[in-house]
């Protein structure tokens, strides 16, 4: 039997918001250590990797490893029935055909239960190699979302150039060009407001704006986002999820034909 209780149910709602526009369906792999999800978008340009550790849940039990294939549009309908201050419990039997979502109000006066049919998804998992990235940037997630939104008005692609002086996001299109430069923060009161660059060597890479905008839907999960870049390999955009885990997005670069 599988059971996972999260007092901060709003976290699961935010997680779903962060992946539902990129993925139509995904397998939730549940084991003693926690829940993992890995899936590519339909175009196979990006990959979502979500980890929720069992010790981050308020109660967690997983007697046997199980994989729950879910249609994320259906899961979104169910999550809309959950109040932001409600407690979520996910439950399933071993070898399940369905998963149950139980939503409890904080005072326990109201309990809602929704049972969703599972799908058999024949999804391959990709092996993600350990990589020492040439540049790792930590910056406020709201600032990253804003830059992606602003620059995607001008063109389909965004160039991210990172050097020791700072990071430059730029784009060009029919109406003209735009760029945003961020300098590394010299002193800051709050670490989550800082721009921090760890650089081994400068990197310049080009990415499709529409995916970056999709990744930015994870902004409510964390005040900080980290971008990891190396020449000619996928970008990693990571949002930590409080004490429970992270969502990482991998995006294949655009490369000269």
């Amino acid at each position: 039997m599988f059971e996972a209780r999260l007092v901060q149910g709003a976290l699961l709602k935010k997680i779903l918001e962060a992946i539902k526009d990129l993925l139509t369906e995904a397998s939730w792999d549940c084991a003693q250590g926690g829940i993992q999800l890995q899936a590519m978008d339909n175009s196979h340009v990006s990959l979502v990797s979500l980890t929720l550790r069992s010790d981050g849940f308020d109660k967690y039990r997983c007697d046997r490893n199980l994989t729950m294939g879910m249609n994320l549009a259906s899961m979104t309908k169910i999550m809309k029935c959950c109040g932001n201050d409600e407690i979520i419990t996910m439950k399933a039997q071993d070898e399940p055909d369905t998963v149950t979502f139980m939503f409890e109000s904080k005072n326990g006066d109201k309990i809602s239960e929704y049972e969703m049919k599972l799908m058999n998804l024949d999804q391959d998992h990709l092996g993600i190699p350990e990589t020492d990235y040439a540049c790792v940037i930590k910056m406020p997630s709201g600032e990253f979302a804003r830059i992606c939104r602003d620059l995607s008005q001008f063109g389909e692609s965004m160039v991210i150039a990172c050097s020791k002086n700072g990071i430059k996001f730029s784009t060009s299109g029919d109406i003209g060009t735009g760029n945003v430069k961020l300098a590394q923060t010299s002193s800051v009161d709050k670490e989550e407001e800082a721009v921090i660059i760890e650089m081994q060597e400068p990197v310049t890479l080009t990415f499709a704006c529409k995916y970056l905008n999709n990744f930015a839907k994870a902004t409510p999960l964390s005040p900080v986002v980290s971008l990891s870049l190396s020449p000619d390999v996928p970008l990693v955009v990571e949002y930590k999820i409080e004490d429970i885990g992270y969502v990482r997005y991998y995006l294949a670069p655009k490369i000269e034909d």
Binding site: V45, H125, L126, G127, S157, Y250, I255
Partner: peptide
């Protein structure tokens, strides 16, 4: 011009 690559060309299947 630059072409979009696929994520599976960077990460092998398990």
């Amino acid at each position: 011009s630059k072409g979009q690559t696929r994520i599976s060309s960077f990460f092998g299947r398990n």
